[in-house]
Write a protein that binds this DNA or RNA. Sequence first.
DNA 1: CGACGCAGTGCAACTAGTTGCATAAGACGG
DNA 2: CCGTCTTATGCAACTAGTTGCACTGCGTCG
Lengths: 183, 183
Amino acid sequence: MALEHAILVSLEERSGSGYELARRFDKSIGFFWAASHQQIYRTLKRMVQLEWVTCTEVAQDGRPDKKVYGVGEAGRAELRRWLAEPSDPTVLRNDLAVKIRGASFGDIPALLAEIARHRDAHAERLDVYRVIEKRDFPDPAVLTGRHLHQYLVLRAGIRAEQGLVDWFDEVLEAMRRDGGEDR
Amino acid sequence: MALEHAILVSLEERSGSGYELARRFDKSIGFFWAASHQQIYRTLKRMVQLEWVTCTEVAQDGRPDKKVYGVGEAGRAELRRWLAEPSDPTVLRNDLAVKIRGASFGDIPALLAEIARHRDAHAERLDVYRVIEKRDFPDPAVLTGRHLHQYLVLRAGIRAEQGLVDWFDEVLEAMRRDGGEDR
DNA sequence: CGACGCAGTGCAACTAGTTGCATAAGACGG
DNA sequence: CCGTCTTATGCAACTAGTTGCACTGCGTCG
């Protein structure tokens, strides 16, 4: 249940419409908290009812009208409360680990091809993060405040992707050595 | 939607009751695919209806009767199919990353204390995995087949936990340097 | 002019997961 | 003897997330 708070953080950084929020989730926040536009719209509606966010309809020329959301005082207080609240450890679900655990019951070459495909996808995402790191945070040692926070979140993504790529390489090497491709 | 297949893998390894499956999820499979006993029971029911698994009631002395599940032919075929099926990249949700992103809107010392607490919890889990690695896989180079697969899954957990601990250390060091504790 | 994409919003039905509780049999300790 | 724990099973109501679709306004392209 962090979607509300991810939305509050984003709107505190900058007010915006549901559509703009969805775009931010696609490009930035969604790397560490994924949400569909539908979920965002529904959650925004509930947050308006809770008075956590304010909503202003804005007429537009040549485009559909839009609703611009901002954080209300109750939302600000709720965000402060949540930021200090202890949370449970993240629950993990990794379907590739399930597949590797069950590899001997299936077609191992096909599974290895699938793992290689995931490895390449994660390597690509790692490349994206590296480019962002170089472009936006060329000198991490001098970062402070909000920029430092954004950088540290990017670092989580980089570490996670690197860890996955390394793991996939280990899996491919070991299972290929085990004869996984000639059965 | 991999719970069905995690259950199929576990029952292929060894038949068992819903209660036994829940214990296996608590101690082993749950490290990479978490599920509550209630979810397992409900899913088993549906899998019996699909004829993916067989179900035999076993009377017991001094204990409640139990239902023992095994994999049926349809389940075996479904598992083979799923193991070869391409899957979507894992969707990520990390509430601590959301908190770090929003740190400047809250109580930074309290957040740092929370991060330290998570760091210690993950370091403990990493220790548990290291002990399992030493005990069960002292010589990884000679592993083959199913034992190799189990080892590689454990390696995913080790890498993930190590990555998290390293990230938490980076976050704590950088935010403390940024004066996070004297505000 | 119709299809598609971007800029906008949102309903409904569904799946996946969680929580809380309930039941029963036996062992054990206070 | 009562409370707690282990061994067993499972209902119901809920939240979180997904899917598919629908609608509007405008620009572009074939």
